[in-house]
């Protein structure tokens, strides 16, 4: 017999629903049947681990990956990866992707009429340190139009992908910027119903990590699911 301590379930409203018609692409892609709730077994409480050896020297500095300097406003994105109890999540992979300062992705599907930047691919990655901290140097991404509804524009955002310690702690999210006037209009951001949870998707400007004459600092802490207090009895 293997006793497994599972992970906590989400509080109502703190995660988006699968079907959210305001975001039109969910209509044909969300399940119509209810999800079937299952207990956490050894399968769910284990998961892939990626070591620091997977990370190359400039993987966390997106301004140093080309032959020259990318165009745009340099910024530092840093923060901690925590669990629900506020405990740091060390040694976990964080993957990042974003568009360039003109609002265009380095991707064949993106045909937005904005310039590509030969010195910016918009991809980065890092493994958190022993205190759960991560730090990227990048360029502030631009806003860009999309065809979800008339005159739809995505607020500036950075995509982040995390694993955490287990299969069920996997998270892909987007980080937004404070004061962005597009946020109230964006269905993806507003798919998180709970206002407190939604606001956690917005980074905060941080003078402490701002580098004089060089780059603005933004802080963004990421919280992964935490362990349930007691072994699951199912």
């Amino acid at each position: 017999m293997v006793d497994v301590i599972g992970y906590r379930r989400e509080a109502p409203g703190t995660q988006p629903a699968h079907l959210f018609p305001g975001y039109a692409s969910t209509v044909k892609r969300a399940p119509s049947q209810s999800l079937i709730k299952i207990p956490h077994t050894l399968t769910e409480v284990t998961g892939p681990l990626f070591g620091h050896d997977r990370i190359g020297p400039n993987d966390a500095d997106l301004t140093k990956q080309g032959k020259g300097e990318p165009i745009g406003e340099r910024m530092i994105l840093s923060g901690r990866v925590l669990d629900e109890d506020g405990k740091p999540v060390p040694d976990t992979l964080v993957e990042l992707w974003q568009c360039n300062s003109a609002g265009r992705y380095h991707h064949p599907v993106d045909q937005h009429n904005a310039p590509l930047d030969p010195n910016f691919t918009g991809a980065g990655r890092i493994v958190t340190n022993g205190k759960g901290e991560y730090r990227f140097v990048t360029i502030r991404p631009g806003e860009y139009p999309w065809r979800n509804h008339y005159n739809a524009w995505r607020p500036a955002h950075i995509h982040l992908s995390l694993f955490g310690p287990a299969y069920v702690t996997r998270l892909v999210t987007q980080m937004y910027f404070p004061g962005d006037p597009l946020l109230p209009l964006d269905p993806i951001f507003n798919s998180v119903a709970d206002a407190v949870a939604r606001d956690r998707l917005i980074s905060s400007f941080d003078i402490e990590t701002t580098i004089p004459e060089q780059a603005l600092g933004y802080k963004f802490d990421i919280v992964l699911r935490g362990r349930a207090a007691t072994p699951m009895v199912d």
């Binding site: 988006p16 990042l96 951001f189 998180v192 956690r200 919280v223 992964l224």
Partner: peptide, 18 residues
Amino acid sequence: KLIPTGSQTVGPYLHVGL
């Protein structure tokens, strides 16, 4: 007690980062 960060779509350009 912290609220886990909300999930957001990978979007159409996931290949860039993943």
